[in-house]
Design a binder for these strands. Structure first.
Lengths: 190, 190
DNA sequence: GTCATTTCTTAAACCAGCTTAAGTTTTTTT
DNA sequence: AAAAAAACTTAAGCTGGTTTAAGAAATGAC
């Protein structure tokens, strides 16, 4: 979903206002494996996915990539803390599936927020939804790995087809080998 | 911190406006172990902790209580999803430490949000902070249990003294027995 | 101040999920 | 179309953390 549609959907505001907001964003075309933000770099931008898919991850003490978050169409992604503090990123953002992404930097966003109350309302809702989803994910992470996988599968059946299994394993918090074993076990049961 | 101070701190808005907002909230005094919300009940209220401490938890398939979130002074807590959908709660909220709490129901909050743009701004910041903290916690949950504990200890040294160990264990995602063992090991090292 | 309840500790047996390593399949590059 | 790289599978051995169970310490109730 295009960003201006998304803002209109959430705020039911007029076309002109939304157009003047949208102008301040930059549209970029992303390619698979491209890095939009690297761990340690200054985090300057906030990304909205119109099409394609991004992931937020970090590299743990053992050198393994740990995926914290995916962003599909209609979701925002950045290292929030670093973005708002204009600090070095604790995570990297990589393109999993190419597409188009809208981005904006902190000064521009702050200015827009001041100028358009509708945008405060929009981001209040966006964050509310994100935090709510986070609470739900904390819950699923407390279950056994198997239940955690089952739940993800039933919530996002299409998404599972789109991404490499190792990414999913890393998101759910287990090894690719174990995911492979799990799937084998499940296939046998059916 | 009192709610009106908190709103003023985040929004730098005038005393009168904040006073008329505050009026719509109800102040309650909480007692240790009291249940402010029970799993399965309709979730009607959103809580702001002025003093004391709350926890959000659910009961897993094995009957164990799993703590998702603590709320200390200055933090908001509810089953966000259920609150905004006016639905049955997937979690319970219990008082860990008595004190005073401000609460508000959905219709009242919606009305205030419409009337006072300053409140949109306030909650945008509150959610932003919450979501940012959630991302950080996802990161810590990917580490070994020991690192996860060490990090919590260095981030909240005082808080550890305030709550029962089994609550902390349940928040960090391990058993009280294991936490006990961990602490013993650490005490030995020093 | 005493009894009852809850919390914390200890230790042994156990298991879900990880590691390692080698082979197979798929995707990407040229 | 071939070669290279990346992703997935399989299986054996291992380990971080759980389970179970019983006792000790702290807290709360009357």
């Amino acid at each position: 979903m295009k960003l201006h549609q998304h803002i209109q959907k959430f705020t039911a505001s007029g076309d002109e206002i939304v157009q003047s907001i949208i102008q301040k964003f930059t549209c970029i075309h992303t390619r698979k494996k491209e890095l939009l933000l690297g761990e340690g770099e200054r985090c300057t931008d906030y990304f909205y996915v119109e099409t394609g898919c991004l992931r937020l991850y970090f590299v743990d003490e053992k050198g393994a990539e740990q995926t914290i978050q995916f962003a599909l169409e209609g979701w925002w992604l950045t290292d929030l803390d670093a973005f708002h503090k204009n600090a070095a990123a604790a995570y990297s953002i990589q393109v999993l599936e190419g597409g188009t992404v809208m981005k904006i930097n902190k000064p521009a966003l702050d200015e827009l927020m001041k100028k358009y109350p509708v945008l405060e309302n929009y981001f209040r809702q966006v964050y509310q939804r994100s935090y709510s989803a986070a609470l739900y994910r904390f819950k699923t992470l407390r279950m056994s790995k198997e239940s955690s996988y089952d739940l993800f599968e039933s919530n996002y059946p299409d998404f599972i087809q789109r991404i490499p299994q190792k990414m999913l394993a890393s998101f759910l918090g287990f090894t690719p080998e174990y995911l492979s074993e799990l799937r084998k076990r499940k296939a046998g049961k059916k």
